[in-house]
Every structure is written in C-alpha cells, then in structure tokens.
C-alpha cells in the first residue's frame, strides 16, 4: 500500500526565495494494489506536485510517504523506481527529441538489467509492448516525432512495465491525446489494475476519473476537500467545488444550459 500522510509542499518563490506558496497542504490518502485512485482538481490545485512527491522528484516540506509501511526516504532510489513509476502529461516533452523513442527502454536496461542477454531483453520488450498493445515493428527504431501521441504514451507505460512496478503515477496522461486514442490508453490503465497494479490517476476531468477509478480524491487549492469511493463522490458530491467541477464537464448529449 502506498500511503501519504500529512504531506505538505511549500514552494519558495520570488527573487531570493523570500516568498512562499503552499501548493499542497496536509494531504493524506492511500492507494492499494489493484486499484485506481483518481486525483481530481483544477489546474494549479497541486495535483502534479503530489504526483512528483510520490515519484520523489520533489521532496515534501513535511509529512511522510510510505510504501507497505516503510518511509520511502529510507529506500534507495533505484530500488524505489523499480516499484513506482510515472507517466506525464505531454508525450512529446517526455522524449528526448534528438534520440529514438525506444531509448527510454535502453536507459532502463543500462541501470537495471545490465547482465540480461540481448535475446532475453528483446523478449521482455516484446512482452511489455504486447501488454500495451503496440506492435514492435510499428514503434521500435523510430524518432518521437514519427509516432503519435497515443503510441508515445503507451510506450512509456510499457517502459514502466519492464520494471514489474507495483504503482504507477499517471499525471494527466490523456489530456493531450485525441478523443479516439484517449479511450485506448484509459482502457489500458484499467486492464493493468486487474493485474494488480495500483494507479494514481491525475486528471481535471471527473468523467474520466469516474470511468476507471475505485476511489476519488478531490483537491482544491492544495487541500483535499473530498475523498471516498468514486460512486459516492460522483453521485452525491458534498463539496460545492466538486459540484462545480462536475457541472463543467462537457457532456455529449446534454448542454450546459440544460443541465443547470
């Protein structure tokens, strides 16, 4: 179980770090293996900051993040990243544009699978690509700009799968994708949870969260304003902010005017 407890992040801003800004304030929730938790809020509400703290790309100002009861700060980074991985919002910025896209695999191999012979490694990659439903011929040996956003995001998920991870932080991973590719990536996440993966699904769109998640955390200005089973949050939102977010989701068959 991945657990956040009283996690707070204060950024120093201004010329000499004189001012501060509290991006996340006393956040606590947990993700169990095999479940998707959606973290929902407007832009600037602190979602990515939480995601980055879980991925240890940013240190929390206070509070603890633990995995199976162990404080993550006590775990070596390399061991930690074997268990917890992330995928980010912008597929094009996630790849170094001067290299081929499959270098993200090579990087993993260099650090974690040095001794693995080529043949075994190829098989491993093929298995991971198969899990994200990509054909090796279509994506290997290509530059990022030769692949679509959906292919790039799925490659990143495949990269995470190479490590047999237990938790995945997915920060707005479909918001830059086309409608028709979105659903594929979303379904993929949902399938992975059936294999025991715990997913932190960050989004600003309640409808997307509702589609795949068991539990929902709603974040407003860095504070958690609602936390519970997705059904409950979705059907009977308690906080006015949640209601507003819900009402803002554009619906295909209902116009905003008619809904209110």
């Amino acid at each position: 179980m991945l657990k956040l407890d009283g996690v707070t992040k204060v950024y120093r801003i201004g010329a000499f770090g004189g001012q501060t800004m509290t991006a996340v304030d006393d956040a606590g929730f947990e993700i169990k293996p095999g479940e998707v938790v959606s973290l929902i809020g407007e832009s600037g509400s602190g979602k990515s900051t939480i995601g980055k703290m879980v991925l240890r790309l940013l240190p929390p100002t206070s509070g603890t993040i633990s995995i199976d009861g162990r404080d993550v700060r006590g775990i070596g980074r390399r061991d930690y990243y074997r268990k917890v991985q992330g995928v980010f919002q912008d597929p094009f910025s996630s790849y170094n544009p001067v290299f081929k896209a499959d270098r993200v695999f090579a990087m993993i191999r260099e650090v974690y699978f040095r001794g693995v012979p080529d043949k075994e490694w190829t098989a491993k990659i093929e298995a991971a690509l198969d899990a994200v439903r990509l054909s090796p011929a279509a994506v290997l040996n290509k530059f990022p700009h030769q692949l679509s956003g959906g292919q790039l995001q799925r490659l990143l998920i495949a990269r995470a799968l190479l490590l047999d991870i237990e938790y995945l932080v997915a920060d707005e991973i479909i918001s830059m994708l086309d409608a028709s590719t979105r659903i594929d990536v979303l379904n993929l996440l949902a399938d992975l949870k059936q294999r025991g993966l715990g997913v932190l699904f960050i989004t600003h769109d309640l409808a997307l969260g509702n589609y795949i998640s068991e539990r929902t955390v709603v974040l407003h200005k860095g504070r958690i304003v609602e936390y519970g089973p997705t059904d409950a949050v979705f059907e009977q939102p308690e906080h006015a902010y949640t209601k507003k977010l819900l009402a803002s989701v554009p619906q295909l068959h209902t116009k905003w005017e008619d809904a209110s």
Binding site: Y81, S93, N96, L156
Partner: peptide, 11 residues
C-alpha cells in the same frame, strides 16, 4: 519531462 523520466530511470 524527459529529464524527469531519466531520473525515474535511476540515471
């Protein structure tokens, strides 16, 4: 993001 991703790869 690719820099963050490299960090996540233990580089």
């Amino acid at each position: 993001d690719f820099v963050d991703l490299a960090r996540l790869s233990g580089v």
